[in-house]
Design a protein around this nucleic acid. Structure first.
Lengths: 157, 157
DNA sequence: GTTTGAATTGCAAGTTTGTTTCGTTTGGAG
DNA sequence: CTCCAAACGAAACAAACTTGCAATTCAAAC
């Protein structure tokens, strides 16, 4: 499971910084958390090995690269047989336009976040992903008018 | 608007790499896209200034830092007066547990993605954010059973 | 109270990476 | 054809990362 990742106050302080800007020099991090640069570096390495840090990435503004439209989709399936659910998960995850995909409880089964260039592209996607899929009973679309807050930061109180 | 960000094939190739791993050395990027390290560096810097690259961050596994629960909330408001909508946006964005917040069209007005340690924490949050807010008419909760695909990567075909 | 051992630290040396300089190339516009 | 601006690459340089090692801490066992 969470497999021996007991983080102390130093680790959390380091993570808090890296979640906002992972280009911060280790020396600077060290000054802020009262640790030497090597100590910081060893902790970062350990957290990467443990999977606490999943990845180091650049966040790109979708609008600036020709994907101005963000869409939410609630998907309801016909059958919840494990095999079919797994197939659906794999199918959704494969699609690059599907930025996020969650399997959820409640009145829907999946929630997708999709990024596209045009509504025509979205319409084409719905054909491929939903209409052509026998196990999709229904889906509801929400178009984002404002990306009020977007990130994957986890609070570290 | 998108303000003079015409990206060529080099820029896109660089972005594709940085979106997956921004710790990739510039020399390595240069080899992959057939450019020298300084050229890569200049392009990255320019894209950061243009806002194409919004941030450089570490992605943290929520479960490993004590936030194993991810929740979606569809929020419907009473009034869509601009002033009240703006207030709601600011209110939601301020909360650390609200990882993402979108203002959307359709049967809901806001969609939130929330990360918490326990359902009790979520319940406490609902009190603060929804029940204590006169402008919230109704909200629907979806608990994530599986984070099938999580990221903010934008396809760059 | 002392000893032991494991874990973590800081310092300093060594290596890799990022950055700047500068001369050259390229692609139009006059 | 020439000129100019923009972008490039090679090399020198600066900064950051990484590693080895001795010193420190702390808890458990003696």
């Amino acid at each position: 499971m969470s497999l021996s990742s007991d983080l102390d106050a130093f680790d959390r302080a380091i993570l808090a910084i890296l979640q906002k800007d992972n280009a911060t020099p280790q020396r600077t991090i060290g000054e802020k958390v009262n640790l030497s640069a090597p100590a910081v570096q060893r902790r970062i390495k350990r957290m990467e090995e443990q999977g606490v840090i999943r990845a180091n990435v650049a966040l790109v503004d979708p609008a600036k690269v020709g994907h101005p439209i963000t869409i939410f989709v609630e998907v309801e399936v016909e059958s919840e047989r494990a095999e079919l659910i797994d197939a659906a998960k794999r199918g959704f995850a494969q699609v690059p336009e599907v930025q996020q995909c969650y399997y959820v409880t409640g009145e829907a089964d999946f929630i997708l976040i999709i990024t596209v260039a045009t509504m025509a592209d979205y319409e084409a996607l719905t054909r491929r992903l939903f209409f052509a899929n026998n196990n999709v009973k229904r889906f509801r679309t929400f178009v984002a008018m404002d990306r009020v807050k977007v990130g994957l930061e986890v609070p570290l109180a």
